[in-house]
Design a protein around this nucleic acid. Sequence first.
DNA 1: CCCTGTCAAGTCACG
DNA 2: CGTGACTTGACAGGG
Length: 301
Amino acid sequence: MRIGYPCINRTVECKGDRTFRLKSYSESRLVATVTDNLNCLLKMLQFNTAHDILFFRITSDLVPFASHPICQFDWQQAFLNRFQEIGEFTRSHYMRLSMHPDQFTLINSVDERVFETSVRELIYHATTLDSMGLDCSAKIQIHLGGVYGDKRKSMHRFVQRFHHLPERIKGRLVIENDDRNYTLNDCMTVYDAIGIPVVLDVFHHEVNGSGETLSQAFHRFVKTWTEEDGLPIVHYSSQRTGSRRGSHAESIDLRDFHSFLEKTKPFDFDVMLEIKDKEKSAVKAVKTAMHDDRFLRFKTE
DNA sequence: CCCTGTCAAGTCACG
DNA sequence: CGTGACTTGACAGGG
């Protein structure tokens, strides 16, 4: 079991997701920003290993406008050395990286053009992980997408479109149950069609479930992961007390997390904490998991 | 320097 | 049909 958090670390003094306005795009601006972002990414990874945090999501803002037509710059080549250093650091610490394109990436959109821009965006994400020399356990995680008034058809469209994706995207792509539209059961249906691993978001499963208990959900989704996909990925977050159902808590509830660890035995998996205060909660979670065999086994590896 | 409207992209709920 | 939420900060231009 690895424990991780997404994208941002407020303890290190740098920012790894700096961007700029499209209107102020220039090659030199891009180079300067990406240089800073990569430097900061390495700093965050160093922070993580120092705190036994071995799972991390890279921000999609790492290379601003990477998939936009305005960007004609060969950033992959220009930063290849830096990417490889970061990949080497990651591998040598048995760390796992992932990425999560934002809500504009829609494989199943009814609009063909939206699908095409989504493919460009996925190519950017895959290129980033490829450049670091990471194996297929470094996943790109998305949701199934919109419903467009007909869920069954929209799921079918996802399956059809998946077949048209480049292999290097297919090998990294995983789907996650969301809090409104697609449940774990829906993801499993898509898995049955194309064999794509399913990320279980336990919070979304509580808010928008398909009837399974936590244990039943684990039994189902774990089977979608093969050896080369790496350990199954779980997203964990907690409800912000007194706030809208579905909104994320400011900081981790350690009693709930402890109980989550107990309830999910003996399954082994990597857990991404989707909590507002990011690395602070991750540090706490690591302390809580310190006596868990699944976590220890990994730490001493 | 400070303030604040706005920021690449889509979908859905709501009025 | 138009607007805000999703989620949030900070870019960038104007005062």
